[in-house]
Design a protein around this nucleic acid. Structure first.
Lengths: 367, 367
DNA sequence: ACGTTTCCTGGAAACGTTTCCCGGTACGCT
DNA sequence: AGCGTACCGGGAAACGTTTCCAGGAAACGT
């Protein structure tokens, strides 16, 4: 009895299922309800029309059997081949910017019963490539990507497969993908101009990896206001708090240290601030950072930032993607969401009168 | 020619596919390579053994045709029915604790080529239920859940379907699920004892919703050290920064305000600190929070915390889940990962000599 | 009252894959 | 040389679903 089963058609299947406690299928439900399998499908998806009486019978049967719809089988057969899944490639699921974006996308998707797959590229093109490929293999209905900028070929491949893609936070050269970005240049330029107006001339710029589109944009914004800052005050390729700290320490040791810092990114801002604070300079040297971070307001002085709204970014990306899923088929669209300058103090510090403030002056208590 | 197709077997399929630019299947590859479809499958999964020569031919064909493996069809037919997906139900994808956990799980999964589906329950049992049900419909191979504690029935249902579940951060009453939690009681008790040893007697406790297991545990830890703190100093059901701020303000207005606060959670800690800081009391009244948060060290004084390690939590949860996927079938296991007290200053403030410091004394400049 | 349309239902054919099973070839052993 | 074994490859049957199609009953119009 346990060894082998007769070769008969359905008998084998049902026996095996019963034996192995396999999942209960539409056929089981159909049998119990005494209807055709097609009817069960119609009831489950409540599509087509079926007599209320039968609906009740089917639902009853499904309930007693503990039937669970199988989404994979469904999407395999379904005409549109939809899986009800969108995939999200972030830089790092755990950083605040990414995760706020994640949340916004997730919410927009959930509203339509769509699930979100996600992964972290860690700024690595290979990893991005892997993720995009896995996601397309999983037949995600659409892709939202924060592109590293060096795996565009893979994104294009996904596009050619007919999967809609929207690039978020960073522009991408392909003309088949929607993008939603932030006005990086404008925001940085505005913050820079503000420092200029406060009398700052020696303004240091600390930026992220130049492979990152936003980093380049922000830097451009900076140079548009300070076209001839000495190269010694410019550091790029900074991608961690530690790197930023080292660089900041180095600049402060200069004979003519900067009177203000502009940071192109979160972690850099924190690194600079930490060094400033360690040296007791946080009230003497101005600091403005791109991208807000939690608790920036609790520090004293508060850290002024050019805030972007990752949730808005995510929501807009989701909107674009969902419209594609709804069949919209126009040319690529490019949304730009505005930044907002938040004055908290650190960006409102005036330049000291002299080019290089005397040490004594520097150490004076801030208030 | 465009209207209808002859009824012949393969012809129809191929024509249609060509016409509609459908995805290319194994059959297409098999045809081009001049092999059987089974061989293509073997090559793609590199299982079984097939002549190097044929492998080459198949890969060549796959390449020229741009063949993409279809994971949904694959998992449908596959004997183990694996989808290569685990699902993660968090409280909120975008909060630092959740997202760090997310990241750890994601990394462990990625190592095995497993993808992660995620969703936010927002502490709502209905939402948790929905998520778990959707995930099981999607046939996720396993589930990692931060349970609200009020949707256990659904979790049990998933378990009965044979899907391994691990509950993380919070205990769950079911004996079919592995759990990994933090030593909430012990950690809180230790921090409380420390305050007691610094002379504090009027210690306020601010806790999260009592429906949350961790909140109850932490509170228990607190009362074990301060069994008879006046009820006025105890606030629970706090779940946002704002709520914590209001409560903190109210307590400070008391004739006998507390000399120390213990916070059961991140946002509460921040709320308390903000109020303390607004009142210039951050150096007079002690504050210890459960769960670390970024920049806690940059404030001054730094905020002392009972730190948990969400990444470790996630990694352990992933480990437990993956072992189940690998076939481990023992009874439920319960991991407890330790907390760590981080002294940064705010938790090291001594109690003032008098029971209720005079107003003048309180307002004196901190330094 | 009869033809025609509409509606509901069930059987069966896909969807793209894995896996079972069997035929065939090559090889090793006696 | 003959036999057995091991191995490789292909055809076809699943997996659980949706969708096509056709049949039958009911409703409708004249």
């Amino acid at each position: 009895m346990t060894a082998s089963f007769p070769k008969g058609r359905t008998v084998t299947g049902e026996r095996r299922r019963a034996e192995a406690r396999q999942s209960v299928t539409m056929r089981d439900v159909a049998n119990l309800a005494g209807v055709g399998i097609a009817t069960v499908s119609r009831v489950v998806n409540n599509t087509g029309s079926v007599t209320p009486e039968l609906v009740e019978k089917v639902q009853e049967a499904a309930r007693t059997l503990g039937y669970r719809h199988d989404a994979t089988a469904s999407s395999l057969r379904r005409a549109d081949r939809r899986t009800g899944t969108v995939a999200l490639v972030l830089e790092d699921v755990s950083n605040p910017f990414s995760s706020a974006l994640h949340r916004a996308v997730s919410d927009a998707a959930a509203e339509r019963g769509i699930l979100v797959l996600s992964g972290s590229s860690d700024e690595s093109p290979e990893r991005e490539r892997e993720l995009v490929e896995t996601f397309t293999a999983r037949r995600a209905d659409g892709l939202i990507v924060v592109p590293t900028g060096r795996a565009d070929a893979t994104i294009e491949a996904a596009r050619r497969l007919g999967i809609p893609v929207v690039a978020v936070d960073r522009m991408v050269r392909l003309d088949s993908v929607d993008t939603v970005t932030v006005d990086n240049q404008e925001g940085t330029a505005r913050a820079a101009a503000r420092l200029r107006d406060l009398g700052h001339r020696r303004v240091a710029y600390f930026g992220d990896l130049a492979t990152i589109w936003t980093a380049r944009e922000r830097f451009t914004g900076f140079t548009s206001v300070f076209p001839d800052v000495p190269p010694a005050l410019i550091r790029r390729e900074l991608h961690s708090i530690d790197a930023a700290e080292d660089a900041a320490r180095a600049l402060l040791a200069l004979p003519e240290p900067p009177t203000a810092f502009i940071s192109g990114q979160n972690l850099i801002t924190i690194g600079i601030r930490r060094v400033l604070q360690d040296s007791g300079l946080e009230r003497r040297i101005a600091l403005t950072g791109f991208d807000d971070f939690p608790l920036a307001d609790l520090l004293s002085p508060g850290v002024s930032v050019i805030a972007q709204d990752p949730a808005a970014l995510g929501a807009e990306a989701a909107r674009l993607l969902l419209s594609r899923l709804d069949g919209h088929n126009g040319p690529a669209r490019h949304s730009v969401v505005p930044t907002r300058y938040i004055a908290r103090g650190s960006g409102e510090i005036r330049a000291a009168a002299g080019e290089a403030p005397a040490a004594a002056e520097v150490r004076a208590p801030g208030r």
